[in-house]
Design a protein around this nucleic acid. Structure first.
Lengths: 326, 326
DNA sequence: TTTCATATGTCAACGGGTTGACATATGAAA
DNA sequence: TTTCATATGTCAACCCGTTGACATATGAAA
């Protein structure tokens, strides 16, 4: 059986209250007693039961992180930073990979509520559910507009979309295709809007390809290949994430198109992984670590009840990284 | 205040015990009562407190996952699969990114113990700590030999290393360099051993480059660049992960070397991300999902106490994916 | 000598849900 | 009419650590 506080007390020859005082650094304890207790804990291999602790204190120090999937480099890196920061602040992280599936998100949310998480960081977009379940729960969203009461942290998507499109225009692309995710209600499409606006301004027509199953490589490839038959004139591609961009480049090679000579390509995200594996790719880099920091900042304020602004939105700066694909 | 079981009971007009009976599907309950209770729960937005529940049942249904970093595509994908499978089995996951740092791993382990996890899945290699802290804790390791009592799940690293090296030999490479991580005590180096054995057999000398900070892109690049000055004759490279391979290819380009004409390169892991971003890369693919499944299988058996074999090792099949870099 | 900061003990309530023991009531089958 | 499965209630103990109230003891400063 696992040792409990009474076992420690007995071995150390003190009362359970004293052990608790040592554990929580409360009241008066002599160094001598403190050491005796710590020795006993070490000897017994005692770990205080945080579950019992949480029950009494009503603070779980648990945060939920709901992401589509840590398989994706953007979310994988985001999750890493989020968790690292949480750990440094004494928060523990319950990880949820929802794959953007509504039913899974619902289940995960339920699970997080039952586990008394102090807050939730959301990187997926189906959680309209949150509205009425919210109650006092602290929530912060990354890059998704979930509801009017949930603060959003994102990078400057409009600026990013503008920078990307303008670069292609500046490089004399005449037929610029956008490869994007599917337009859904809960998600803002600022990258797309910037693309459309920028083309509008110079009298060009947007050509948009939507990839529905973000995490299904197969269908992704098929849709991208359609571009070559349906728009053989394409000479510029703005992909709203680097994976799409990479898939396009692969397809382009198969179709005998040279990059950047025949077609210029710019991606989005600029994750470390893609920067390492495909350093040539021109992309818009998101400040992933900064996003993580800011999201947690806001969430902690919500948890402490210091946060009141209902329509809070944080836009962090992006940067253009020019490789050799443009 | 959050509603509790008594609030639900009051609203439904039943006793708390009856609510508990509904929650746990225990004893006799009429459908009518069941519905009344469920309605009340819905109305109050009640979530049973899993913390209180765990305290009594002594089962947290919590698993700890300790990985170096989810930023890395291999571990990101592994974490995704592990978490997904856990979720489908009713287990919750506490995520830990240790960056392979001993002090962090120690802290994480401590945290997991305090949180009464039912088991731990380890993908890092510093946990000699586990030996004496282990007690009754169920642990399974992925690809690392932590101690004699901890089962290991991995893919067939020796076979993979052999396949990779043999491919380079078959493609007439004369000077084959291995790019590997740093050799440490707790980790097995079967990929490296296979490389050495294979070269030995045909009378060639191994040339090994070790990259210490797996997650520091900077130093990684520097070490790799040394290859060109120290071994300009190199015409084949076996990198023990795809990221190293990609870094080498980048460096090779900078040095005016053509791949595969001048130098042939094979990587390791074959993650979806790298397969998408750099599909040309020849690599040894690990069955990541299968590894995750098997690890959890074993862990659950340990938790249920059905597991006895102390020296358990599972080797899953790898496969060669030939791209155009060899 | 008095006073007070320091040091430790005892005790019980508390957090929220679970469970076993036991009581009671109803309606259908034997 | 008896019996029993079904249905629900009451009650208290339990899980484990925390905390406040209160008692007691010691030694040093005033």
């Amino acid at each position: 059986m696992k040792p409990k506080i009474d076992d420690v007390a007995r071995l150390a020859g003190v009362s359970p209250t004293t052990v608790s005082r040592v554990l929580n650094d409360r009241g008066y304890i002599s160094n001598e007693t403190k050491e005796k207790v710590q020795d006993a804990m070490a000897k017994l291999n005692y770990f205080p039961n945080d579950i019992a602790r949480s029950l009494y204190t009503k603070r779980s120090n648990l945060l939920g992180i709901i992401m589509p999937t840590t398989s994706n480099p953007f979310f994988g890196e985001l999750t890493f930073h989020l968790e690292s920061i949480c750990a440094s602040l004494g928060y523990k992280v319950l990880l949820c990979n929802s794959l953007n599936q509504k039913d899974k998100e619902k289940k995960y949310l339920d699970m997080l509520m039952r586990n008394q998480v102090d807050g939730i960081i959301v990187g997926t977009h189906n959680l309209g559910i949150l509205n009425y379940q919210k109650q006092n729960l602290a929530v912060v969203s990354i890059d998704r507009y979930l509801s009017e009461t949930i603060p959003v942290v994102s990078s400057d998507n409009y600026e990013g979309g503008k920078l990307a499109t303008e670069l292609l225009v500046r490089k004399s692309c005449e037929h610029i295709v956008l490869i994007d995710g599917v337009k859904e209600i809960e998600k803002s499409y600022l990258r797309r809007e910037a693309y459309i606006d920028t083309l509008d301004k110079i009298g060009k027509t947007p050509i948009i390809y939507e990839i529905p199953e973000v995490f299904n490589v197969q269908s992704q490839q098929e849709i991208i290949e359609n571009i070559f038959s349906e728009h053989p004139e394409v000479d510029g591609v703005f992909a709203t994430n680097d994976i799409f961009a990479a898939s396009f480049i692969t397809a382009a090679k198969r179709y005998g198109k040279k990059i950047p000579e025949d077609i210029k390509v710019i991606g989005y995200d600029g994750t470390e992984t893609v920067r390492t594996v495909l350093p040539d790719l021109t992309t818009i880099r998101q400040p992933i670590e900064m996003i993580a920091k800011e999201a947690i900042n806001i969430l902690l304020k919500e948890i402490e009840g210091e946060f009141t602004d209902p329509l809070h939105e944080t836009k962090l700066p992006i940067s253009l990284i020019e490789g050799s694909t443009t």
